[in-house]
Simulated assay, not measured.
Amino acid sequence: MIVIGVDAHKRTHTLVAVDEVGRKLGERTIRATPDGNMEAATWATRWPQVKFAIEDCRHVTRRLEADLLTTGYQVVRVTTQLMAGQRRAGRERGKSDPIDALAVARVALREPDLPVARLDGPSREAKLLADYRDDLVTQRTRVCSKMRWHLHELDPELQIPSRGLRRRCVQDQVEQHLAGMSGVVAQIARELLSRCRELTVRINQLEKQLKQLVQAMAPQLLDIAGCGVLGAATIIGETAGVDRFRSKAAFARFTGTAPIPVWSGNSSRVRLNRGGNRRMNCALHMIAVTQARGIGPGKDYIERLQTDGKTRTEAIRLLRRRISDVVYRTLKAIDTTNSTDQSCLAPDLTT
C-alpha cells in the first residue's frame, strides 16, 4: 500500500508518496482547483494500491476529499497534533510543504485508526444549519443589547422582561412605545427592532428545518430525556458518522467527557477534560443539566452520587459521561438499522 500525504493550502496542494516503510517515492504540487485534484488522482495511478492521507483542514480540503472519494480512492484525515510530533522526529530540519506532506504520510502509516473521510451527507447539512442558526442567535443577542441601551435612554421606566425582545408580543409593545418618539436614538431603536424581528423569524425557520432533519435522520435521539431538536442536530452534525469511532470510550474522548487521570502513588484522582469537541460537550451538558432538574433518570443518579460524597459538579460530570455512552449506543443502533435496511434493498446476486 502506497500512502500519499497531502499538505493542503488555499491555492496549492503538495503531495508526497511513501512506501510501506516510509521511504519517499515521489513529490508533486498541484493547484487547489478541480483540475488540480484530477491531476492528483491521475498521478496516483502509477502505483497499484494507493491511500491518501490529508491534513485535517475541513473547509480547505473538502473539495479535494470529495474529488478523490469520487474517483474511488480511500482518504484518511491526520490531525495537526500528530503531524507536529512526526516533524520533530524527522531527519530533515525546518518546515516546508514537502516536509509537512511527508509527515502526514508517515503518520498515516503509523496510526491505524485515523478518521476516514466520506462524501458529505445529511449530517453536514445539520451542522451547517445549526452553525448558521447559532450565528444568527449571536447577532440577535448583540442587537437586543444595543436596543436595550437606547430604550433605557429614551424611557428609563420602560420595563422589558429578560429575553423578552425575542417574543413577538413584546416586540409589538416596544414598537407601539417608539411610535410617538422622534430623534436619532428613536430611529436607531426602531431599526434595531426591525432587525431583531427579521432575525427571530429566520431563527424560527431554521429550527423548524432542523426538526425535520432530525426526525428524518435520528428521531431516537429525541427520546433521550432532555435532548431537544437543537441538541440532537448538534450531535448529528458534529459526530458526522458514529462508525468512525471504534468504541464508546473513543467517542467520550471526542466529546470531552472522558476524565483525565492525574494520580500518583496512593492518591487516585481525575481532572476535568477541557479538550474534545466543545460544541458536543455543551450539547451533552445541557442534557445533563435538564435531567438533573428532574426530567429523566439523571436526578436520582446525581442524588445517589451526592450521598456517596461527590459534589454536585462532580456528579454532573459523571452524568455527562453516562449520557455520552447513551448517545453513542443510540447512534450505533441507528447506524446498524440503516445498514440493515440498505442490505435488504440490495439485489440478491447469489441466485
Rank of each mutant, 00 (worst) to 15 (best):
M1S: 04
I2W: 07
I2E: 06
I4V: 15
V6Y: 02
A8D: 07
R11F: 05
T12K: 06
L15Y: 02
R23I: 03
K24W: 02
G26S: 12
E27V: 13
T29I: 03
T29M: 10
A41C: 08
A44V: 04
R46H: 09
Q49W: 04
I54S: 13
E55S: 11
D56P: 14
R62I: 07
E65F: 12
A66H: 03
T70A: 15
V78K: 13
V78S: 09
L82M: 14
M83A: 07
Q86V: 08
G90E: 12
R93Q: 10
G94D: 00
G94H: 01
S96D: 04
S96K: 08
P98H: 00
A101L: 11
A105E: 05
R106Q: 01
P112Y: 00
P112G: 12
D113K: 00
A117R: 09
R118V: 13
L119D: 05
G121C: 07
S123M: 04
Y132L: 06
D134N: 10
T138F: 03
T141N: 05
V143Y: 14
D155F: 05
I160L: 15
S162W: 11
R167E: 15
V170C: 02
S182W: 07
G183Y: 00
V184A: 01
A189W: 10
R190I: 05
L193I: 13
E198I: 12
L199P: 02
N204P: 09
P219Q: 05
L221E: 06
D223P: 13
A225Q: 04
C227L: 06
C227F: 06
G228P: 04
V229P: 07
A232S: 03
A233L: 06
G237F: 06
E238C: 01
A240F: 11
F245Q: 07
R246P: 08
S247M: 03
T255C: 15
G256V: 07
P261W: 11
V262H: 14
S267M: 11
G275I: 02
G275H: 14
M280E: 11
C282N: 05
I287W: 12
T290K: 13
K299I: 08
D300Q: 02
L305A: 13
Q306S: 11
Q306V: 10
D308W: 13
K310A: 10
T313S: 12
A315S: 14
L318Q: 10
R321N: 01
V326G: 07
Y328A: 03
L331N: 05
A333C: 11
D335F: 09
T336L: 12
T337L: 01
T337E: 15
T337F: 01
N338D: 11
N338S: 01
A346Q: 11
L349H: 12
T351E: 02
T351K: 07
